[in-house]
């Protein structure tokens, strides 16, 4: 797979990222402030804490058709 094809596939993907507001979400905020790009496939969902994450939230995202779920905290 050449680089262009790989880029195309990534851009078609949907990844839900459940982020703790105290660390990962704040880091994403900082990355934005520093103009550091990240793939548009990543859809960030802010959580008060990753301890709030329930397996049901992961299942709901996958059932809705996303390609992957990321948990960051």
């Amino acid at each position: 797979m050449d680089h262009q094809a790989e880029e195309f596939q990534v851009s078609q993907m949907q990844i839900v990222a459940y982020c703790c507001e105290h660390c990962a979400y704040a880091a994403a905020d900082l990355a934005g402030g520093l103009r550091i790009p990240y793939p548009s496939a990543i859809k960030v969902v802010q959580l008060p804490c990753t301890g709030k994450l329930d397996v049901l939230m992961v299942l709901q995202a996958l059932e809705a058709g996303v390609d992957g779920v990321m948990v960051a905290g």
Partner: peptide, 10 residues
């Protein structure tokens, strides 16, 4: 029940 339901659907 919700988890079982989602698991069976998928």
């Amino acid at each position: 029940a919700a988890i079982t339901s989602a698991s069976l659907r998928m």
